[in-house]
Nucleic acid binder design. Structure first.
Ligand SMILES: [Mn+2]
Ligand SMILES: [Mn+2]
Ligand SMILES: [Mn+2]
Ligand SMILES: [Mn+2]
Lengths: 219, 219
DNA sequence: TATTTAATTTAGCTTTGCCTAAAAATAGTT
DNA sequence: AACTATTTTTAGGCAAAGCTAAATTAAATA
């Protein structure tokens, strides 16, 4: 067993994503579901990753990344998000079309390639979905005071900075509503009944939409 | 067995490369050598590719591409050369550094990705080593009257258009001699003794170098 | 606490793609 | 034509990564 294969990288990435925000170790089932695989497969992979020292795994309890495992995960995420940026900003893909491609491109591990790509793209800080791009040294810088849009009170002004759900369907739904990263909007009214909001110049945004928009409130 | 995996694509590509220029089918040993693999592996893969209808294989005789196999090979070569162009022209890699990376990138099959990349790069006709980039429809256009530089007589002027050997070592050797695609040169003298040439402003080029340069003679 | 349910692991199978060693076929040489 | 050397194929193995089904452990419930 050499470095991290595509599979191993995807598992490490999944572990990273699933453990940020949640408490404690990641369950086998959650991992399997996230990767569209069977729990038995995830279980086997955890054993392998623990063996390699990238994961701490207590049987029947769950798994969490070791520092070295987290480092690999961050590298993969960096590659993923840089490629997504490239695909959208340079090749003109829509933001809902790039995830699957990046899911493949991210596994080409070559420090020089990624550093040159980063440079070529102007060292972007965020990917097309508003997620921060980890730096080459494995640090993640995100100083934005993000808030979920569903918390906004009537009269509030905010700028859209990211999405919680970045599935194709949701992103295309946002396209249909004219919602993009960077736009500023003002909540005119919140409806007690269903949590929806009337937004100046945008009509009604449902609670489902608001709960999946990350914003920074404007003064 | 679904589409062509990375391995299958590499074998089809090797078959294409080895059969252009040579007569008759490609031998198992040549194939294995080209891919740094064992004859037994190549033999097994030929059986598989024949099964899929991409290769004509007569036992103990050798293999050749069917039209559908050639089509796949050309697609892979198109992707390989487009990525090489991108790596050199956009990311600033040297021409001796891109082959291995392209060897991995070429296996990401996505028509939209490649068409957009092609577009983004300005639909280049040749890769950084002077090899023609197959079009999306599988045609290869190369109308250049290429000649090997070793055939040049004293007094001839020519422009360098490609290389026969595109190994890292040879390309770096050319760098050291100040030889690049596109430069024009004049042969002042050929030496009977060892086939070397004195080139105006460039000193002596050995026969080994000349035999690996593809040129177009200037009027 | 005993029992049932749910989650997790283990065991065993499959495919892909590589390998080595042995067998078979072709080619070359006396 | 017979023998030898080379090439090619076949047979049998291995590792990775997935699966299903069975066994095990933990959690929930009566
Ligand atoms: Mn993504
Ligand atoms: Mn991936
Ligand atoms: Mn190449
Ligand atoms: Mn390749």
């Amino acid at each position: 067993m050499q470095g991290a294969s595509s599979s191993r990288e995807d598992y490490l990435k999944a572990l990273y994503v699933l453990s940020t925000g949640a408490e404690g170790p990641v369950t086998t089932t959650a991992l399997a579901e996230h990767l569209s695989m069977r729990p038995a497969s995830a279980s086997g992979m955890m054993k392998q990753l623990a063996e390699a020292g990238w994961v701490e795994h207590e049987a029947y309890r769950g798994a969490s990344l070791t520092p070295s495992g987290e480092r690999i995960a961050l590298d993969v995420i960096r590659r993923h998000r840089l490629w997504e940026f490239f695909l959208v900003e340079r090749l003109g893909f829509a933001w809902d079309q790039v995830h699957e491609l990046a899911e493949r491109l991210e596994h080409i591990e070559d420090a020089e390639l990624i550093n040159r790509l980063d440079d070529y793209l102007g060292c972007p800080d965020f990917d097309p979905h508003g997620d921060p791009i980890p730096r080459a040294d494995g640090t993640v810088v995100d100083a934005r005071p993000l808030q979920v849009a569903s918390e906004l009170r009537p009269g509030a002004r905010a700028v859209i900075k990211g999405v919680v759900d970045s599935s194709d369907v949701f992103l295309r739904h946002l396209d249909a509503l004219g919602i993009r990263l960077g736009i500023e909007f003002k909540v005119v009214e919140r409806h007690e009944f269903d949590g929806s909001a009337r937004v100046e110049g945008h009509g009604i945004w449902t609670l489902g939409v608001l709960e999946n928009l990350l914003v920074v409130i404007q003064p």
